[in-house]
Design a protein around this nucleic acid. Structure first.
Lengths: 245, 245
DNA sequence: ACCGCAATATTATAATATAAATACGATTAT
DNA sequence: ATAATCGTATTTATATTATAATATTGCGGT
């Protein structure tokens, strides 16, 4: 149980285990999360270590505890979904197209706005990062760079260029979304090649300080990705709905 | 030091103290955060308790620790600003108009999009909540309800009606933003009263399923709030810039 | 000057004891 | 019979202490 793959120490390893178990719905009313003492036995760890792991998860809104009542899982609405760890656990083990769609709906709001801000406030360094990302995408188009990573670099550059700390916070989420969306829109290549031009349109507008154009271009870009996801989602739902068709 | 006002127990109380100290910039290169042993002395708490508090803060991206290297504050870019606690600490003790503006810029992206989604997907219960919030605002207009709380109820209702878990996550943030923005736009009772009509426009569009109209109405609403904030911000910046004028 | 090793500081883990909080049940009074 | 109160048991909260692991720093040798 204490493989310690990630985070390198027992506390983090246990927090990851329990965190994953919680978000994947292992615990329920019939199967509540065990008390501190039992958990520490289960993981073969001391109580202090286990308590630290539990405290980390309460800090992320997943757990709560009281004397005599024990430890319990918070309702899902209380989970801090925007915490990178929580989101990672959720997507890693319970990947669902529905979640990815919800996620992309948030990106559809955030990234065009970030592009608009970026067009107004981006400095030299941020513009350089943006240009570099576009060049990487063009290189990827020729097979000289990684399409996914260059794509991520572009979206991150836009968010950073907004010079807004809250948008900048979302870089991790966009990166996560893109990494997972590749599972869905697997053929990346055909779609991606065409979209380099669209990405460049965003970049050009930001570099030229054209706020509205930048926002609109970004909106189209993500809207198109969302459209494909929804189509796929509907198809797979139809397959499940009529298994013998 | 162990007043235990919030969270009721020592661990949370210490996490709050240290968390607040971190985000308000108490610790720096010259004044690094003390090591575990010294911190536990400082707060008069046992080491396990202090370690739990530190682990909660590492879970929120504020701290990191290694054997022999000690404990250190993570760079600001690493802080989980979207964590309600972190944001609360930041605004409570280091309230700045700049931060509120950045925050509202995010709302300007998110809430119109949520309104658009809501117009398409809101169910009966969500629509009822929305109508109730509008009625509360109208009551507040007559002095029969609290203007701030009814305003919050409205924005929360829209986010919830989007039926998107990530938008729903942001209800706490919008509530926080509104509570703090009243400090700034406090004397603008006139503006507030007039805006009930604008809020109702959003609500009507959502209830009628008019997505684009709902989004546009919400965008205008927040854009106006943002405009006022920026004006104030510029004014106070000017005052500071020319103290003897 | 550079490489390696040892000393040392600090967190990580463990074991254990005591205190506080609270849910539940029993008992008593109305 | 029902409600209220009190006691008991369970679980987390806090404290103490010891040992292990880890990584930095400096020293010493080459």
């Amino acid at each position: 149980m204490n493989t310690r793959v990630r985070g390198q120490n027992l506390t983090y390893s246990i927090a990851n285990h329990i965190g994953t178990a919680i978000v994947t719905g292992v615990y329920s009313k019939d199967n509540p999360i065990p008390i501190e003492a039992d958990l520490s036995k289960e993981f073969g760890a001391s109580r202090p270590v286990l308590r630290e792991a539990v405290k980390m998860l309460t800090a992320k809104g997943l757990l709560s505890a009281r004397p005599r009542r024990g430890t319990w899982v918070q309702p899902e609405s209380h989970w801090n979904l925007l915490d990178p760890d929580v989101l990672g656990w959720l997507l890693q083990r319970k990947f669902s197209t529905a979640l990815l769609i919800e996620f992309t709906e948030l990106r559809l709001a955030v990234e065009p706005a970030a592009a608009m801000l970026a067009a107004r406030t981006a400095g030299a360094a941020e513009k350089a990062a943006l240009s570099a990302a576009i060049e990487r995408m063009q290189a990827a188009e020729r097979g000289d760079d990684d399409p996914l990573e260059s794509d991520i670099a572009f979206h991150v550059a836009v968010l950073q260029a907004s010079r807004n700390r809250f948008y900048a916070q979302l870089t991790g989420f966009t990166a996560t979304a893109l990494r997972f969306s590749i599972r869905m829109t697997n053929r990346y290549k055909g779609v991606r090649l065409a979209s380099v031009a669209v990405h460049k349109k965003v970049s050009d507008a930001i570099l030229a300080g054209k706020s509205a154009a930048a926002g609109e271009a970004m909106r189209r870009l993500i809207q198109e990705a969302l459209r494909i996801m929804k189509k796929r989602h509907a198809e797979s739902a139809a397959r499940k709905g009529t298994p013998e068709a």
